[in-house]
Design a protein around this nucleic acid. Structure first.
Lengths: 196, 196, 196, 196
DNA sequence: TATTAATCGAGACGGTACGTCATGTCTTTTA
DNA sequence: TAAAAGACATGACGTACCGTCTCGATTAATA
């Protein structure tokens, strides 16, 4: 059964990890999740879609969760990075708007929702999700808000983590329950928690 | 493989649905979820644990999600009902405190988290969860808040659904990510959204 | 992937073992061995060819060796039974001629050679082959020769097992090494060992 | 995973074939066959055991059968050569006694049995076994017996190949079926076929 | 004294088959 | 007619080897 993606691909590079295979797996996982849902996201299907041997997947990823984390981390960085420099009110507000857009309208955001979901079923997923995604990102978010607070741009009503959860929580919860998250709602949450 | 739960049980009742079998399935599902996690919650395992034939499960429930919804609805009603009468500030505040307790500390609350999770993987689950649980409950929550607003006990900053999500969202999000939800946090959310 | 053998087949018979499935497996094993050789005789291929689930095979046979033993026992009985009644010289001589024909010219005889071969690779196969085929058959052969000796029809030069091996050994050895076994050779072995 | 056999070994010899690697492979194959049986005799296991890269094996041997043939030919020559000079009755009788000892009691004899077995599963093996082992050896055996016949030391009842098979066949057959081959049996076969 | 060419260990790769498990459907037997 | 029992086709799981390949290192013969 040949690869589904058609480009010539594959300059097999001997002893070294094959970057083309790595990308094929990540894209296949992404595609399958978006097109057919998590239930159809099996290792066999990924291998089939990517034109890759199952063993190649098992060699590099301990589970499909880690594959999804890899795609999530890459996609998040591109579409949804935590601003590392400026901490003005508008930048911070824009970050949360971007968050809402990511989890409700960007196909890549489905990966985050799927991983939060999977973490309920599987303690290992929970740990990986925290260690590799939620934890590091939260660190950056805290930095962002700390800098904003010091600059007098924002002023959280609650302790930092609680304040972030008070904004992010409703966004994610609505995404998980299939509701939309209009920009006005994000702004209201932001104003309520960070601009009082 | 005989039933795990030991009582003699089962006066097989021919013509009528066997209530003992129904209860055995619900308890088995609950037990398995709490003790071994969602991953081990298979139809086969439920049948084994309940000492029931698979077909008996398939006859009465279209999927294991509906089994869990049955247990969730029963358990919610017992431990976590939406107050139908009084709508004082304290009652409403108490309701959200109960919500937080349910999803973070009550084993039965794990069922709700598991169903929210499963809904990400499976559109049918999403529909059932809304139609049978989230929707009806939200209706009651809206009533509760409406009565509270009319009585001048609370005064939501946002439209009703958004206001409820602004309180429930952070609670559920923290539960989903394994964080605790101290009573003080619930109170702060409540005060911020409903008492301004 | 549908069954290869085409008849409508399969009136699935619920609680009871499905005889059609059993036969389909035996025939598929036989066919594959004869047409493609032992190397292609995998459980997956048998399942495919028989239009049967792998699990159905694993449910009833501990290994493909036992499948082959089943076919060998049935086929041997039909084509190559040990004469149970008469023990005249001609009957006994005819038996050994039949033996030679079976292992060198009958496709079903390939199964015996394959099992002797597999027994070298696998102690479990060796045990099964003895317990289910070689042992019982040797018992009957000993009876046959004992009756023949008592009737004065034959007179073995060696003890019974050695005498039988002195005739059967060359036949099987030549079959295993791809040589033919002409009738005259069988007769010469018979005359040399049993008619001196 | 380092080599299992411990000596420092291997002064990698650049341009030339590495004799140490060749021997390591042969010994590893022998060891694995004797200690763990044919089933565990995989190319990967040989490479592991020998501390050699798989490619080194594939470079020099087309299959593991050829490896075994190499060891068999060397070991046969040492322990079990066809007498090239004298052809007295005792020498010939001794040869067959040695044959029996080799296939039933010498670990190296297991290799011959394994190859006869493998030849049933694989036509390529059958050809190699004949071309490189059975054929040349049979040639020598015919010479031996021819010289013995001319010297009046033996007098076969059958044509040469049949006579040899009438002695060797029972020996090998009993070895294949796990029976012992006492010296007296060899002598009886020898006397019956070659001394009448 | 470089350069070339073949060897070696290592190990990634696309595959096939393994034996196990859960799915949802079906049938028989028992009460 | 409900329920226990369990056979069945389907298909994913994670593992083991297959035979091919490409690397970087080593070493002998050649230029």
């Amino acid at each position: 059964m040949p690869a589904v993606n058609s480009q010539p691909r594959r300059a097999r590079s001997g002893n070294q990890r094959d970057e083309a295979a790595r990308l094929a797996v990540l894209h296949a996982a992404d595609d399958l999740l978006v097109e057919h849902g998590f239930a159809k996201l099996t290792i066999e299907a990924i291998a089939r879609q990517a034109g890759v041997a199952k063993q190649t997947i098992y060699r590099w990823w301990p589970s499909k969760v880690e594959i999804l984390l890899d795609t999530l981390i890459e996609d998040s960085e591109k579409r949804f990075a935590v601003p590392a420099e400026k901490s003005t009110e508008d930048v911070i507000r824009g970050y949360f708007r971007g968050y809402a857009r990511f989890v409700t309208r960007d196909p890549a955001g489905k990966v985050l929702l799927a991983l939060i979901a999977e973490a309920q079923h599987n303690p290992g997923t929970a740990k990986s999700l925290h260690d590799r995604y939620l934890g590091p990102r939260r660190e950056l978010e805290r930095d962002l808000l700390t800098r904003g607070t010091e600059a007098g741009e924002v002023s959280p009503r609650l302790d930092l983590d609680a304040a972030i959860d008070a904004v992010v929580g409703p966004i994610v919860y609505r995404a998980l329950t299939g509701a939309n998250v209009p920009r006005a709602l994000v702004d209201a949450l932001f104003d309520g928690q960070l601009k009082p």
